[in-house]
């Protein structure tokens, strides 16, 4: 691994100043499970690594706030997997977090890091998208909130401005009953990078939200408000046609070694149908909320 400078600021202002001051030469470090791999393979060569784990304003808390559940910048996948509130209200996120790497990786990898890397295959993105997540970013000119759907640009690129750090991710509290689920495709059952990753949420008003990743440069959120997908009695063939429209934007990479575009697209539909069915079941059998 190439040498770099290392700083561990204790105040958010100092962290932002470092990130802002060094611009593209700086990389923030939280869990490090992606960053350190890329430092070693040389695909990232920062002059300075800013470890944000000492910043007083950043924490690993999952906090209930007014109208939403907030995940601190240092919240790890393990924290999410074991959190009862996440399991109860955002099961697709809990399921997705459990898919991220091994125990050792989940103990280190952060939810915020998973978003900031903006990998199209990130497992937690689809769940966060269907739950309407917002990014809380703080930079030299203050704090702003960005809907997650407006955060992703393409693989590795977000709308974060120079000097901005993500402080938290907020999920709106569910306003009623909801059935949701996360599904994915991998090459083996043990931890693996997803060749398709997908989340689905169905609400009693007949709206179905689907988000999918690993089939294009960024994860995509789509919505069916016709009531068709959420209707347990609708013919499967109609649902397939509806999904075809919703998935029209999927454009899997033709050069990936993990799966062919044709397989990914076919699996997107398989997972879509299965997820809709599971979400409907969960909605039907779920306790009121």
């Amino acid at each position: 691994m190439r040498a770099f400078a290392y700083e561990r600021p204790t105040r958010l202002d100092d962290a932002i100043a470092l990130i802002d001051g060094h611009g593209p030469d700086a990389r923030p470090l939280a869990g490090g499970t992606d960053l350190i791999i890329r430092l070693r393979d040389g695909s990232l060569r920062p002059r300075i690594v800013v470890d944000v784990k000492g910043v007083a304003e950043l924490d690993a808390e999952i906090r209930e706030e007014d109208g939403f559940l907030a995940f601190g910048a240092l919240t790890t996948m393990t924290d999410i997997v074991v959190d009862g509130r996440v399991g109860r209200d955002y099961p697709a996120l809990a399921e997705a977090a459990l898919f991220v790497g091994s125990v050792q990786i989940r103990n280190r990898a952060t939810l915020v890091g998973n978003m900031c890397n903006a990998s199209p295959a990130a497992d937690t993105s689809p769940a966060l998208l269907v739950y309407g997540a917002r990014i809380v970013a703080t930079g030299p000119s203050g704090t702003r909130r960005v809907p997650l759907d407006e955060f992703f640009v393409r693989s590795g690129v977000t709308t974060l401005a120079r000097g901005e750090l993500v402080q938290a991710i907020e999920l709106p509290r569910p306003t009623g009953r909801r059935g949701s689920v996360h599904l994915r495709r991998t090459r083996r059952r043990g931890h693996d990078l997803a060749s398709v990753t997908l989340a689905c949420a169905v609400t009693p008003d007949g709206v179905t939200r689907l988000a999918y990743g690993s089939v294009g440069p960024r994860p995509v959120l789509v919505l069916d408000d016709t009531g068709l997908l959420a209707d347990p009695t609708a013919p499967a063939a109609d649902k397939v046609r509806r999904l075809e429209m919703l998935f029209a934007g999927a454009s899997p990479s033709p050069t990936s070694m993990r799966a062919s575009p044709q397989y990914r697209l076919a699996m997107l539909h398989v997972l879509g149908l299965r997820a809709v069915a599971t979400a409907i079941e969960r909605l039907a059998s779920g306790a009121s909320q």
Binding site: I37, R40, S102, I105
Partner: peptide
């Protein structure tokens, strides 16, 4: 690359791949 676990250690009660943790951390 955090795949094989041969370097697993426990840090503050949690298992991690020590190849993906900097010594300074």
């Amino acid at each position: 690359v955090g795949e094989c676990g041969a370097c697993t250690v426990i840090i503050d009660g949690r298992s991690v791949d020590s190849c993906l943790v900097l010594g300074v951390e």
